[in-house]
Structure formats: C-alpha cells, structure tokens
Nucleic acid binder design. Structure first.
Length: 222
DNA sequence: GCCCAGGTGGGTA
DNA sequence: TACCCACATGGG
C-alpha cells in the first residue's frame, strides 16, 4: 500500500470520510478566504460577519470608502493590506463582468481558472485552490500550514518543498476524488495534534492512536 | 504581557 | 530559485 493510501485510510479510520457540504457562494468564499489569511477562524468569522452586516452587497463594498472597509474587517488582522486588495478584486470583477460575480471561471479549463484567480491581488495558490475546490467543486488541492507541515512530516512530499510547490505535488499524489475529504481530514488532524501535542506513530506518522497502535507498546515520540 | 491562530508579496543574493 | 521579512488582530 502506498504511503498516501496508508495515511488516507488512517485518517478515515480516525475521523470518518467527510461528506461534501456545499460551500459559500464563490465571491463570498473568495473574500472569506482572503480574510482568513494568516489569522484564526474565529477572527475570520468575526470580520466576515462584520463586512456582511455593514454592507448590503459586494458592490457596496467595492464603492465604499477604504476606511469603512478597513474598519469592518479589522478583526481579521492585516486589514491595511486586505481591505484594498478586496476592493481591487471587486473592482476587477465589476470591470470585467459588469457585476460582482465569479461565474465566468466555472466554464474555464481548470488551469485557466486557477491562473485567472492567481492574477487577482492578494490571491495566492492556497486561496485560489480553496475557491476552486469549495465554491466550484473543481479538483484543486489547497495547501495550508497544517497540510504543508503534515505532508512533509508524513513523507508525502520532500521536507524542503515549499507550500507553493506542494500544491502541484499533492495534486499529483492525491486522487482527485479524495481532494475534499483528505484536505479536511488533514487539517482536522493537524489542528488536533497541534493543540494536544500528541506524539506520532512511527509506522504511518499520524499523531494519534491510529490503527497501527494496536499491538504496539505505545505512542512513540517524534 | 506572552503565545498562538496562520498566506501573500516584495526585496535580496 | 530560495530565503527573509512585513503585515495585525483577538482569545486563552
């Protein structure tokens, strides 16, 4: 069994197989993901709730004074960078479509859609992949800090590989039908073991009482 | 007060 | 290409 299959099976045995849940609307998903960059989920949710409450539409956000947008998203952190980028993106969507919509990328080939998103200010490989996977159900694999760290530790990718390169490599390794569930389970596992400082199994590298712990003397550190 | 949550982009060698 | 660093907030 491949290292990937071993890890995938161990994660499913620990957490189950995540069932597809419809994500946010594409523009909501994009803005929410930008707000989430380098901050906690709680701060992202607070900022996203504030901007949705403060403005009646994304077009209103586009047309608003920068200071108002900045104030609305302040809890997300890095607001001085995120606010102008969000307004720039909304302006680009408006200029290209005459409306605040991302629907045009639904019909693009995957790499064209990814490239289009990556050309937007403040959109890197992780944000682009999140929008493609969660809002459009397209086969893109987002690599956040947990996915990156665990993928290296579990031997899926070289220890020196950057998160940016890891997107391509993990999209090659992981079957497309697993992108959604493997991404969610890796993050769930990453967050859990990060908090709990759980030691890793020497066989599959997972930090928990995975299936291989049966018959072993106990968790090994590492 | 300190630590933790946790991507993008600009600059430099 | 690889590395370094700035960017900011809120909760425990």
């Amino acid at each position: 069994m491949s290292q990937y299959r071993l890890i995938y099976s161990a994660l499913v045995s620990l957490y189950g197989e995540p069932v597809w849940q419809p994500g946010l609307a594409p523009v909501d998903e994009l803005i929410s993901t930008i707000l989430s960059q380098n901050t906690s989920d709680a701060n992202r949710d607070l900022a996203f709730g504030r901007i949705k409450w403060r403005f009646e539409s994304w077009d209103a956000v586009r047309a608003a004074p920068l200071t108002e947008v900045l104030e609305a998203i302040r809890p997300a952190g890095l607001a001085n960078r995120k606010a102008p980028r969000i307004q720039d993106i909304l302006q680009i969507l408006w200029d290209e479509h005459g409306a605040i919509t991302l629907e045009s990328i639904a019909s693009m080939p995957l790499e064209e859609a990814r490239g289009w998103l990556l050309a937007l200010p403040g959109v890197g490989p992780k944000t682009a992949a999140i929008v493609l996977l969660f809002a459009f159900g397209r086969p893109a694999f987002p690599v956040d800090t947990h996915v990156h760290r665990l993928s290296k530790r579990l031997g899926l990718i070289p220890k020196t590989m950057s998160a940016e390169k890891a997107h391509r490599e993990l999209e090659r390794i992981v079957p497309t039908e697993h992108y959604y569930s493997f991404h969610l389970n890796l993050i769930r596992h990453g967050r859990q073991v990060c908090r709990a400082r759980i030691p890793a199994c020497q066989r599959c590298g997972l930090h928990s009482y995975c299936q291989h712990y049966q018959g072993l003397s106990g968790p090994e550190s590492g």
